[in-house]
């Protein structure tokens, strides 16, 4: 079962990498935000999985924090993005 968990951890990593690629190279800023958001969500899952891989699943608090921060970060991005314009 450990190998299954590890494999899924790796799998999430791959998805993270793809999202990262989107965040780095994107046609519009919104796509970039989308990529970042996806990356964040996947990191939450990844952290959750890591706890199981390492046999200490009691660290899920970290994953919760990740989820919170990811959401707040997303809101902050949108909020402050309103004020910034390309021309500025």
């Amino acid at each position: 079962m450990d190998s299954v968990l590890a494999a899924s951890g790796l799998g999430i990593l791959i998805v993270m990498a793809i999202a990262l690629a989107r965040a780095m190279v994107a046609p519009t800023v919104y796509d970039r935000i989308l990529g970042v958001n996806m990356f964040g969500t996947k990191t939450v899952l990844f952290i959750a999985t890591i706890g199981f891989i390492m046999g200490r699943p009691d660290f899920l608090d970290i994953a919760i924090v990740y989820a919170l921060i990811n959401f707040i970060g997303m809101v902050a991005v949108l909020r402050f993005f309103e004020y910034t314009s390309e021309s500025n």
Partner: peptide, 29 residues
């Protein structure tokens, strides 16, 4: 800069993930 900051956010997330794999859960937090 907007993208820079977002990427920096990702960078921090990655760092934190790395800290978890290196057993530093408090630091990752």
């Amino acid at each position: 800069l907007f993208s820079v900051v977002m990427l920096f956010g990702i960078y921090s997330f990655l760092c934190a993930a790395l800290f978890v794999t290196l057993d530093a859960v408090d630091v990752a937090f």
